[in-house]
Design a protein around this nucleic acid. Sequence first.
RNA 1: GCUGACUUAGCUCAAUUGGCAGAGCAUCGGUUUUGUAAACCGACGGUUGUAGGUUCAAUUCCUAUAGUCAGCUCCA
Length: 596
Amino acid sequence: MPNNHSNHSNNSNNSNYSIDTIRHSAAHVMAQAILRYYSSKGFKVQLGIGPNIENGFYYDIDINYKITESDFPLIESEMLNIIKEDLSITRKILDRQDALHFFSGLEQTLKVELIQDLPTSEEITCYTQGEFTDLCRGPHVKKTSEIPVHFKILSVAGAYWRGSEDQKMLQRVYATCFNSANELKDYLNFIEDAKRRDHRKLGRELDLFVFDQHAPGSPFFLPNGAIIYNELIAYIRRLYRKYDYKEVITPQIMDAELWHTSGHYQNFKENMFFTQIENREFAVKPMNCPGHMVMFKHNKFSYRDLPLRYADFGRIHRYEKSGSLAGLTRVRTFTQDDGHIFLPLYMVQDEITELLTMYFACFHHFKFEKIKINLSTRPEKRMGAEESWDYAEEALIKALKANNCEYNVNAGDGAFYGPKIDFIVFDALKREHQLGTIQLDFQLPERFDLKFVNKEGELERPVVIHRALLGSLERFIGIYIEHVAGAFPFWLAPEQAVIVPVKNDSDKQIEFANNLSKKLRQLGFRVRVDSRNESMNLKTRQIQTSKIPYMLVVGDREVDGNSVSIRKYGDKKSETISTIALLELFDELMKEASVG
RNA sequence: GCUGACUUAGCUCAAUUGGCAGAGCAUCGGUUUUGUAAACCGACGGUUGUAGGUUCAAUUCCUAUAGUCAGCUCCA
């Protein structure tokens, strides 16, 4: 969810209360409304938790009734009643026994469970408004009438009690509340805008990709989508040339033993595809690293060869749970702009500095200006000695600090083989997306017993850095489509220009258009002639809705002047330029594709 | 995987309490020869996701299953 709306609502008119306090109080009102309304209908209502989230709040409810969208107005009108009743909201401190007794008496067993799990040191407080009392730390507004009426219930979905798969599934009602009608309207508009930009919708409309029930979670890239896909790879390859990477190609299916060695089998068996042949168990690769380890071992490398940077655009397959699949952002087969760097320990910091330079250049190239960095440290489920974790985490912190990078720490969020740095970008709607990653790994070199010959002529264990810039290309394409709302820059656009003869029965115009098209295509541009028997208005409309960067109209005037009437996507007007100037313009535009 | 909703022509959507499956766009054919956001006429297009069941009759009700969506959980 985006974070842009919560900010400007903080400094709004209404009150001394923070928007968080207001929303949290609104959550209580919603819980009260649901309890009132459905209890009166004879349903059993139990309340879970009801915290604030970015841009709103939710309340988890256990109820023997299926709440649907059609119930929202009923709940909302009950909420309005509660606000109008102007109930005062009072705070009370309870001792543990009284609190347990009180909520048991109300048969609110979820609340009882929460109280039982509170540390004994914690003070137990309740907030009461009218007939409704909730276990809550607060703070809250003083009376229900202080809650602005600019609230809206947004959706309802299942959620596990206490976030655990083993627990009961509750119904989570999402809602939001703002200080003013305008802020609420802005937020609802934002939701609409996000729908308009949805990459699944644009993917269909721009003929980029389709999904089919025969391959769940697996995109079929249509010709237009394949162009974007391949142009992205071409761009990354240019970066690789600049930063001295060596591209390799590795097998799709390898003996399962390899995945035992790497540790992936033990950790991710449930998420891998397997196949059996000649009594051997093979695994479809869920990642590229073990393949690169195998290659490293097939050679005896000198310290002079390091850092050795392997890059791989291999297709990988992961069995993702059916319920977690979503458009291009969560798929079962994808390609990473993956790479592994083998190097001695002492080179790590310089290498990460180099990587940071490369990463920022890449993100800025795609017009992601604001970038957030997360440092994820050792998870519970991990391999390797504590000392190497200490060292690895320290090395990443040093490199970040040396490069003046601000970062947040995500304790326990690292990979099972090492800590990592993640790069989060903000899209045009200010939503956050994780793209690149840099992961330090002391475990795989150990498990694969990797060695290189150092200056002293001794065998030494290298370190491995796992790294990806865009992450999964599929996912990146999804994010990028939404970032640019389907209007790709010239160098990435599946079609860069369409040439439209004014009259499709004019041999002179058609010939001129075809010749121009042929010339541009020879120069590598993606253009076509649209000489269908359709009106200029229709063609204009189709070119605009397809978000094609340029429309080139050629009539008798242009043919005679060896020129084109050029109209840029999004512009209302066209201008006439010579074909020479057109070639110069296109050449200039293609510089966008360069890595500088 | 879990909870809930949804699935009708290539796409976007209709179809009253269970009573003859329909429209726009796209496609194809014709007319029109167009100067910057939808010319006109006509035709084609369906085992209503799939498999069962209830019923005189099922797009509609029931069961199973697949896929999609909103979340949850997970994400090397």
